[in-house]
Design a protein around this nucleic acid. Sequence first.
DNA 1: CAGGAATTGTGACGTACATCAATGTGTCCT
DNA 2: AGGACACATTGATGTACGTCACAATTCCTG
Lengths: 224, 224
Amino acid sequence: MYVTIPDPGTIAAPLAPLASSTPKPAEARLRPGAFLYYEGDEVDWLYQVTSGVVRLTRLLADGRRQVIAFGYPGDIIGFPADGQHHTDCETLTDARLQPFRRAHLETGEGDPVLHSALLQAALREISAMQDHFMMLGRKSATEKLASFLCVLTDRVGQDLGNYRQVKLPMCRSDIADFLGLTTETVSRTFTQLRKSKIIAIDQSHTVIIQKPTALLGLSLGDLD
Amino acid sequence: MYVTIPDPGTIAAPLAPLASSTPKPAEARLRPGAFLYYEGDEVDWLYQVTSGVVRLTRLLADGRRQVIAFGYPGDIIGFPADGQHHTDCETLTDARLQPFRRAHLETGEGDPVLHSALLQAALREISAMQDHFMMLGRKSATEKLASFLCVLTDRVGQDLGNYRQVKLPMCRSDIADFLGLTTETVSRTFTQLRKSKIIAIDQSHTVIIQKPTALLGLSLGDLD
DNA sequence: CAGGAATTGTGACGTACATCAATGTGTCCT
DNA sequence: AGGACACATTGATGTACGTCACAATTCCTG
């Protein structure tokens, strides 16, 4: 999950498990805070998140951290480069993950449908990351957070009569490290959105979108 | 070409043309300033840059621009997502490009070696983009520019006795839009590096690295 | 339900980078 | 060669966001 301008074609894509004629290995079930893999690990499996949320991070020597992506149901995670993982992957909630052998991506291994689905997921990932570049490089704190909330709501939000609601399983510093901000700035930007009645917040981790149009406007750069 | 911490395995990879048993379409030759494709165009071909440099950009509605990557010899550009290009591609110099049919990536089309080479290029692209996230989100102007110069020098620099030298075919605003800065900041950071004798600049577009170790240190965050 | 730790929010203040405005420098063109 | 045009540099000033310090919630555990 990257923060991109909402695009019905990809963002709201149905979360059907990848088509495959191959018998699947058993789904993995993980508790919150479990690590699925670490940066530098050999890649043996890719995973499709089937439920829950995971977090992909990369660290700098001095401790600075970048959250690369959040993995939501439907997302494929664990693409190898030179055979290795290049991020850490930790679960934020209870999660279930469907593993796929790396060979299905790299050699096809007798299942062209699965091979093609994994390849397409990799290509969509490249495009989504390009959107995220624009965000990290060129957007203000308000635009970043508004974009984040819009995309998340489109993907996993629930309708609430006039309003929409979205649960945030990640903490403020995860959001900050994803958007290239500090927790303080994320917090302040949340209260700013709250004070202008665009959102309401329930117990820090539930956001009610009271003015979806205004929020979308902010995400696109309509003067704050 | 993304700005990453130099990694001998990938950065300095040999620029041999992709192995293929398939007869190749003729190489394309382009003059500086030519557009290879635009965002939204249907993808029919991928390209390997064989000489010259190209620039991939994405635009925001209000004109803000992000340079996604520079394409140097050896790089594969034009990966599709949902069949479309998601950046503009313009040449910065005279350039030659080897086209490969999109089907070679997506279906294999009878050339598994080429298919696999294109797939591996896509996977390395994902990893390189993750590095670039760290840079856009978490590095200072000095760290960004130092990283940029280090990576460029490692890939396409030439030895000059004790020093190393690198030619920059892109203008300051291209560098700025790649690093998420303004041209003024890029310019100021260049002169700061120049005044501390870490680099020297010849006619704006040639950089001589006088203290490679110091530059590498700055790129990694050793206090400026 | 109480107490304490972790997370989140707020305030005061500093600064890195943006912005706005000239000025310099190289390049092209007749 | 000379003028002009784009690009790069420099300077003065502004501001969005970071930093540091602490207060308020939330959440966790017994």
